Amino acid sequence: MRDLDGLDDAVAAAAFRRLVRHLRHRSDAENIDLMGLAGFCRNCLSDWVEEADGSMTKDEARAIVYGMPYAQWKAEHQGDATPEQLERMRQSVSKNA
C-alpha cells in the first residue's frame, strides 16, 4: 500500500485541482455546512494554499480557491448561519485538535 507522502506530486496536484473545481461548482454547499460535517471549508483550503506557498496573500489564495474575490463569492453564495449550523460547526471543529 502506498502512503500519502509517497503520492506523486503531479497526481496530488491533479486531485487538488479537481477538488477546487468541485467546490467552485457546488456553491450550494456553504462553508458553514462543510465545517459542520468535515471540520474544514474553502477558507481552510485557501489558508493551506497560502501556507504551502509562503509568498501568497490570503486574498490571493482565496481567489484561487473561490475562482473570484472572496467578497464577491460571499455576496453571491453565502447566507447567514443559523444557530444550529454554528453549533454543528463548533462540535465538528472541536474534533480537529
Rank of each mutant, 00 (worst) to 15 (best):
M1G: 15
M1Q: 13
R2M: 15
D3A: 10
G6Q: 11
G6M: 09
G6W: 04
L7D: 00
L7H: 01
L7R: 07
D8S: 13
D8T: 10
A10D: 14
A10N: 13
A10Q: 15
V11F: 10
A13Q: 13
A13H: 11
A14T: 13
A15W: 11
A15C: 10
A15H: 08
F16S: 06
R17I: 11
L19W: 08
L19K: 03
V20I: 00
V20H: 02
V20Y: 02
L23W: 07
L23K: 05
R24A: 00
H25M: 03
H25R: 10
R26Y: 06
S27V: 06
A29C: 09
E30H: 11
N31A: 00
D33M: 11
D33R: 14
L34N: 08
L34K: 00
L34M: 08
M35H: 06
M35V: 06
M35G: 05
G36W: 01
G36L: 00
A38C: 09
G39S: 00
F40A: 12
C41K: 04
C41L: 00
R42C: 05
R42Y: 03
R42L: 07
N43P: 08
N43A: 13
C44V: 05
C44K: 06
C44I: 04
C44G: 03
L45F: 03
L45T: 07
W48Y: 12
W48R: 12
W48N: 08
W48D: 13
V49T: 08
V49W: 01
V49G: 08
E50P: 09
E50Y: 01
E51D: 10
A52Y: 04
A52I: 02
A52T: 05
A52C: 02
D53A: 14
G54D: 06
G54Y: 08
S55Q: 13
S55F: 13
M56C: 04
M56I: 06
M56W: 00
M56H: 02
T57W: 01
T57H: 00
K58V: 10
K58F: 10
E60Y: 04
A61F: 09
R62Y: 08
A63L: 07
I64G: 11
V65K: 03
Y66G: 02
G67V: 04
G67A: 03
M68V: 14
P69D: 07
Y70L: 03
Q72E: 15
Q72I: 15
W73M: 02
W73C: 02
K74A: 15
K74L: 12
A75F: 01
E76N: 15
E76C: 15
H77C: 07
H77V: 02
Q78T: 14
Q78R: 14
D80C: 14
A81K: 14
T82E: 09
T82W: 09
T82C: 05
E84D: 06
E84L: 08
E84Y: 07
Q85F: 00
Q85P: 02
Q85C: 04
L86C: 12
L86Y: 03
E87L: 11
E87K: 11
R90N: 08
Q91R: 09
S92V: 01
V93E: 04
V93R: 11
S94C: 00
A97K: 14
A97R: 15
